[in-house]
Nucleic acid binder design. Structure first.
Length: 420
RNA sequence: GGAGAGGUGGCCGAGCGGCUGAAGGCGCUCCCCUGCUAAGGGAGUAUGGGCUUAUCCCCCAUCGAGGGUUCGAAUCCCUCCCUCUCCGCCA
């Protein structure tokens, strides 16, 4: 959430920044609510002060055996007035909080303005797009014997897949490879997390209250399935004050991700590109505010390293204001080349959320000037989506015969096999 | 799932319903003394909000969470959450 002070000072400026991402801030309502909030708050605090002072006087009078009946009748009148003001204040606060929780992050000035992914801007490309002297197959054809969509549909419905044999093995190898790379070479701590979390955990990272329809809930329990490990990983620092020497925090986890919205728009119905359940290796950074844009470059580079080691061509784009997620101030997407589609497809999303999540989480660090605390900055990125990486390997490493070569980097995880 | 115990500041740990935002200890920071791998003395040491140009001061809130009783709640009552011990079940 944004700094509540933005609702008190510089409201117009904030509205203008949000307009860049096509969010319409109700300035008038906020203005009105803030005015009454301020009045009510000073009123409540004055009344409470008066009550406290008088109650203390009663205590003293009682202790010294003095007369206290007049004091009692005097203070009882305060009660009703205080109660009513507190009720009103609570109501105003709830409305303001509710509004604040539904306002997205402010885009960083460097983010290109645009409504859709069409306005995303390519930053760089890596690798050479492979030329095939035969008709390329897509992953569904290449995996036809070990990738069973019909079975999955019988077990769980559409938008699921069941993998068998060497493809299941490849899926595991990919996750293993990514975890090893990030823990051994990039300095991340591996974390194993719950896959079911409380709603408040999801409020912390911004999925709730606004995007409940994207989540799977568990019947009879106040729990949701995580849509990404960003949720439990970022919540590691919830309600904590981090000392300077504890930062940066760099975490990595391999988890399944559950998304109910996937497929609701009829896009990517073929294959395992868009599923209700998929595995992902997620990277999270918690850093001092001054360092977060450097960290965004670092985190993105870590995700890129996975594709470079696998020798799969990709490009990096910076998302336009309209294509960015709710909590992000700036996002780079990694898009991998899929020969089966003859186009680049998203495989990783790396975002700097600045202090947006930290405020919701109340995750703070010591200020560099030693005066109190300030919200940390949080970043997250896929490093990478395992299912989509599997697709990319299959399609980029296919041969005329239909068999698939194992990328060198994965061989140690595949018993040295050269082919699937 | 059953029975019991408990949740207080960075940690340990007190706390008859009334200057207790909280004794005492540890830890940490600064200063003094001393001068050497130690000890002693002093001061400071929660978070959020408000006020303020800013600091200090002052004010409000917070003793697991939320309600209630009361002029006044860390202290009494209710609900929930969590932790620990024992039993049961289980990968």
């Amino acid at each position: 959430m944004l700094d509540p002070n933005r609702f008190r000072r510089g409201l117009d400026e904030t509205a203008a920044a949000l307009a860049r991402r096509f969010f319409d801030l109700d300035v008038e309502t906020i203005h009105r609510l803030e005015d009454s909030r301020r009045d009510l708050q000073t009123r409540v605090e004055t009344l409470r002060n008066e009550r406290n002072v008088r109650s203390r006087a009663i205590g003293k009078a009682k202790a010294s055996g003095g007369e206290m009946q007049p004091l009692l009748t005097d203070v009882s009148r305060l009660g009703d007035e205080l109660e009513e003001s507190e009720r009103q204040l609570g109501e105003i606060r709830n409305r303001l909080d509710a509004m604040l929780l539904e306002v997205p992050n402010l885009p960083h000035p460097s983010v290109p303005m645009g409504r859709t992914e069409e306005e995303n801007v390519e930053v760089r490309r890596w690798g050479t797009i492979p030329e095939f002297e035969f008709e390329v197959r897509d992953h569904v054809e290449l995996g036809r014997e070990s990738m069973d969509f019909e079975l999955a549909a019988r077990l769980a419905g559409s938008r699921f897949v069941t993998l068998f044999g060497s493809i299941a093995r490849l899926h595991r190898a990919l996750a293993q490879f990514m975890l090893d790379l990030h823990t051994r070479e990039h300095g991340y701590t591996e974390v194993h997390t719950p896959y079911l979390v409380h709603p408040r955990t999801l409020v912390g990272t911004g999925q709730l209250p606004k995007f409940d329809h994207d989540l799977f809930a568990v019947d009879g329990h106040d729990l949701r399935l995580i849509p990404t490990a960003e949720v439990p990983l970022t919540n590691v620092v919830r309600e904590r004050i981090l000392e300077t020497d504890e930062l940066p925090v760099k975490l990595v986890a391999h988890t399944p991700c559950f998304r109910s919205e996937a497929g609701s728009h009829g896009r990517d119905t073929r294959g395992m590109l868009r599923q209700h359940q998929f595995d992902k290796v997620e990277l999270v950074h918690v850093v001092p505010p001054c360092d977060s844009y450097r960290a965004l470059e670092e985190l993105t580079a870590h995700a890129e390293t996975v594709l470079q080691r696998l020798e799969i061509p990709y490009r990096v784009v910076v998302l336009s204001t309209g294509d960015m997620g709710f909590a992000a101030a700036k996002t780079y997407d990694l898009e991998v080349w899929l020969p089966g589609q003859q186009r680049y497809r998203e495989i990783s999303s790396c975002s700097n959320c600045e202090d947006f999540q930290a405020r919701r989480l109340r995750a703070r660090c010591r200020r560099s000037d030693g005066r109190g605390t300030e919200p940390v900055h949080t970043l997250n990125g896929s490093g990478l989506a395992v299912g989509r990486t599997l697709i990319a390997v299959l399609e980029n490493f296919q041969e005329a015969s239909g068999r698939v070569r194992v990328p060198d980097a994965l061989r140690p995880f595949m018993d040295g096999a050269e082919f699937l």
